[in-house]
Amino acid sequence: MRRWLLLLLPLGFVGIALFFYQGLSRDPSQRDSALMARDFPTFSATTLSDETRRVDESLLRGQATLVNVWGEWCPACKQEMPQLLELADHGIRLVGVNYRDTREKGAEFLEEYGNPFEVNVFDPDGSLGFDLGVYGAPETFLVDREGVIRYHHKGYISPEDVRAQILPEVEKWQ
């Protein structure tokens, strides 16, 4: 009887050790967005190129759209521009959110690195970014035709990510 109880000790230890080990091997920065499967947040803002034009969340209805949050101050955003241009070449609709930036810098950026975006929402104070739960650029959201967020990519999009993740996800929700 007591022998059997002693066996519980190593078993319990192994159980707890496995549990913690599995926790250790997880990357805490790779977690799902809290907005997954929820409506794109409501907003009202001007566009980067035209301060008299106002846009809101209805911009994202009717067609699956990739929403990319970027800023001129963000080096990884520059590096992922070729990939975004490639996605636009595939006929995918891209909308940019110019996050915590100025109109001049934003325009310069598009001039230099190309413009894959149908339109850019101008978000100088980061309020739309905040409602999206963005805590660093670049971040990319896939919004389906109903305006629901279906996929979230945190950080730089590599050419490999385009093939392995972005394109299949867009296909799924188009």
Binding site: D32, S33, A34, F130, L132, G133, Y135
Partner: peptide
Amino acid sequence: MVERFGEY
């Protein structure tokens, strides 16, 4: 905050 940034 949790609605935007998650339980994390």
